[in-house]
Amino acid sequence: MSKLDAAKIDTSPLHGLWALTNRDLKKWYKVPFIFIMSLIQPFMWLALFGKAMNLTAIFTGGSFNIPGFNIPKEVINQIGKQIMFQTFGTQDYFSYLAVGMLSFISLFTAMFSGMSIVWDRRLGFLDKVLSTPVARGVIPMAKVLSTVVRALAQAAIVLLLAILLGMDASHITPAGLLGSFAALLLLIIGFASLFVTLAIRSTSWEAQMAIMNLLNLPLLFASNAMFPVTYMPEWLQTVAKINPVSYAADICRQLLLASPGMADIGFGFTYLAAFAATLSTIGIILSWRYLSK
């Protein structure tokens, strides 16, 4: 008897990609609890960190003066505003941070892409997929793709929340939005590939957690996501200028807040594209090799 009567079998090298991607996404959007939780976290960052760190008020609060000099309040406020603008490229820190959060949430979501592949291995799902005709490279690709969808959706919601919470939205244009999300997309592809590659042979989610915790804060703080590069010590500046997170945040700020940037937008995009292309290529090649022992 013929094994595959009538059915037209899809034998393209990418078949199964969407099925595997959608499987991961279902775990996210089909469980309202996880979906809401994943949105609450960025909201907390914005509402608590963004609002508590009220640098604008420090400089323009009005209580600030120098004894002996009777400087008019307007002058002080003007000076404060200038300092803020020179430092952050926008007049309030909340807007600065909110846009930085877009890169941060992208990075954070991308880090988790490795976890699910560890679980797939432990629970035998990966073995099952490996015994089907799905191309080896499709397995990490599906993980990256589902992470991209999730991270971009979360970034969009963070942006929306930030605007609702008072971010300066006067410079936002459709083209600026598109450009910002393109930058984030490249950032996510790069980091998701990196973490999938790190996880592909591992059966230990503890190790994966350790790697995430190790890289999490350095990647965040050694970037301009929360503070401008200019005032960092030399060595930290060097690191921050290598860190792709900085370029994604920089592009977003230039496009969404019309801030003067750390680097040229064109250079930023080239850098991020190279980052994404390199890591995803390495990721696919290495996983292909690991998965066909």
Partner: peptide, 8 residues
């Protein structure tokens, strides 16, 4: 599983 085998 079916889509992993490329079955329409």
């Amino acid at each position: 599983c079916a889509s992993l085998y490329g079955i329409p």
